[in-house]
Design a protein around this nucleic acid. Sequence first.
DNA 1: TTGACGTGACGAATTCGTTCGCTACTATAA
DNA 2: TTATAGTAGCGAACGAATTCGTCACGTCAA
Lengths: 136, 136
Amino acid sequence: MDAEGFLVVARHASSQPTEVELQILRILWNDGPSIARHIHDSLQAFKQTTYSTTVKMLSVMMEKGLLKRDDDAKPQVYRAAVPQQRTQKQMLSDLIDKVYDGSAAALMLHALSSKKATTEELREIRDMLDQLEEGA
Amino acid sequence: MDAEGFLVVARHASSQPTEVELQILRILWNDGPSIARHIHDSLQAFKQTTYSTTVKMLSVMMEKGLLKRDDDAKPQVYRAAVPQQRTQKQMLSDLIDKVYDGSAAALMLHALSSKKATTEELREIRDMLDQLEEGA
DNA sequence: TTGACGTGACGAATTCGTTCGCTACTATAA
DNA sequence: TTATAGTAGCGAACGAATTCGTCACGTCAA
C-alpha cells in the first residue's frame, strides 16, 4: 500500500486533483450539479481567469474522470464524479505519508495545536476518541 | 494573513516545497547536514534519477531559500534552511484550508478514523485534548 | 432569416517542476 | 605532472498544469 502510494505520486499519473481542480470540485460539492457559467462565477472568488479558461479546465477534468456531465440538459450540467469524503481522505493520507512519515498521530497533534479548533469541535473529537477506544 | 496566503498560492511563488523537494528536506531533517552524494544516494530509494539531476534540484532549492550550504567544507555540505515542524504545520494548514474548508476538526475526524493510529498514540492525543481544554 | 449572445470545443502559448548532457573544478593516485 | 574519479554549475529539453484567443454551434428576439 505504501509502495503503491509512492508510485502514484512518482508517476504523477491520474493522481490527486490539482489546486484549481480542487476549487472546482469544492464548488460542485457545495452547490451541487452546476452549469459552466455558475462554476466560473464562483471561481472568481479565488482566481481571476477568463470564462474560456474555466471551460477548458472542466474539459480536462472530464478527461481525467473527475467530473461527469449531463449532455441532455440545455446548458450542460457538470457534477463531481468523485465523492468529497473519499477525496479528502485520499489527500489526507498522502499528506500523512509524505510530510509526517506515515504518522497520523503526529499530524493530529499539530492539528490540535493549531488555532482552528473550537471548544465545540474539541468535544466532537473527544467523542470520536471514546468510540475508537471502545471498539479497540 | 488569509489574504496573503491566497496570494502566495495564486502567484505560485515561493510557496510549498514540491514533491521531490520535500523528499530532499526529509533526508536532511533525518540525517542532518549532508553532502550531495549522500542526498542523491538516499533519494534513490524513491526516485531513479541521475546524480546530475539531484545536484540541480539542490541548486534550485538554494535559490528558493529552502537549503543552506557550507562552502568551506571540502565537499560542500547542505542543510535544511527551514525547520521540519514549521514546514509540516504550514503544509497541514494549507491542506486544512484547501481540502477541509478550514475545519481542523473535520480533518481530525478523518485522521482518527484512519487505520494508522495506535492505542499508544490515541493516549497522546487524549492528553493533548486535556491540556487544550484546561487552557481554554 | 438575420443578428446578438451564451456555451463550449480546440489548439497555441506560457509557466513551473523535473530531467539530463556537457563542462569545469578539485583532489588523489600513479 | 598526468590520469582518474568525485563534485558542482549551466543551459536545454520535456511534460503537466494553466491560460487565453478563436471558432463553431445553439437559442432567442426582431
